[in-house]
Design a protein around this nucleic acid. Structure first.
Length: 203
DNA sequence: AAGTTTCT
DNA sequence: AATG
């Protein structure tokens, strides 16, 4: 039996199709104002396979200088677009944490994109959970423990699913093994959007 | 290694 | 190092 690590919660079909469409429209507006950019690995400059943008007061970026949160888009230099109201609402319903999210990282996966196993640890406070929302094509999501090399389990995530990494699961290693092309009609040109809500600073 | 490749 |  593949049981999820402690503190890792999968909420299948958390968003119904209407809610997914509404959220997608919000994200389209975000991307129109803050275009997807190509993150690269620190030091090596090797590009990640996902493209990304953010909304909220802070956004996560990756460039030759490292990983960090910053208030502006790395290409346009403008402030990130405001966090859509429905993301604050979703956080209130699901996170079990008083302070509101400060960052929403928007990752776009085309059919070839993957994400290696990693921890979300660039935040100053791990008390708040990480809330992850899937839109579009299915993916295989892998979750491990707080240390590399521990046991991992995988689950298939579909559009509208939400995953929460909180408590003991807050620093669980996780990644995306693969995208299952053409498994959702939500995104007309295919692919998968993942929205990650995080608190960055100490509340 | 938030990568890429490889194989018990 | 996992073994997706």
């Amino acid at each position: 039996m593949n049981v999820l690590p402690k503190g890792v919660r999968h909420v299948p079909s958390c968003l119904d199709p209407a809610a997914q469409k509404a959220l997608l429209e919000d994200i389209r507006a975000v991307v129109a104002e803050a275009p997807l950019f190509q993150p690269v690995m620190p030091r090596t400059g090797k590009p990640l396979s996902v493209r990304m943008t953010n909304c909220g007061s802070l956004g996560w970026v990756a460039d030759r200088n490292g990983y960090r949160y910053q208030p502006t888009h790395p290409v346009t230099g403008k402030s990130w677009p405001a966090m859509p109201e429905r993301l604050f609402s979703l956080w209130d319903e699901i996170a079990g944490h008083d302070a509101p999210p400060e960052a929403c990282l928007v990752n776009f996966y085309d059919e070839t994109a993957k994400m290696g196993m990693h921890q979300d640890k660039d935040e100053a406070d791990f008390a708040a959970p990480v809330v992850s929302i899937s839109l579009g094509d299915d993916c295989r999501f892998r979750v491990g423990e707080t240390t590399r090399g521990g046991r991992t389990t995988s689950l298939r995530l579909a559009s509208g699913d939400v995953v929460v990494l909180g408590g003991e699961g807050r620093l669980a290693y996780h990644g995306v093994d693969r995208i299952y092309p053409a498994t959702s009609a939500l995104l007309k040109n295919g692919g998968r959007l993942n929205l990650t809500l995080r608190r960055v600073t100490k509340a």
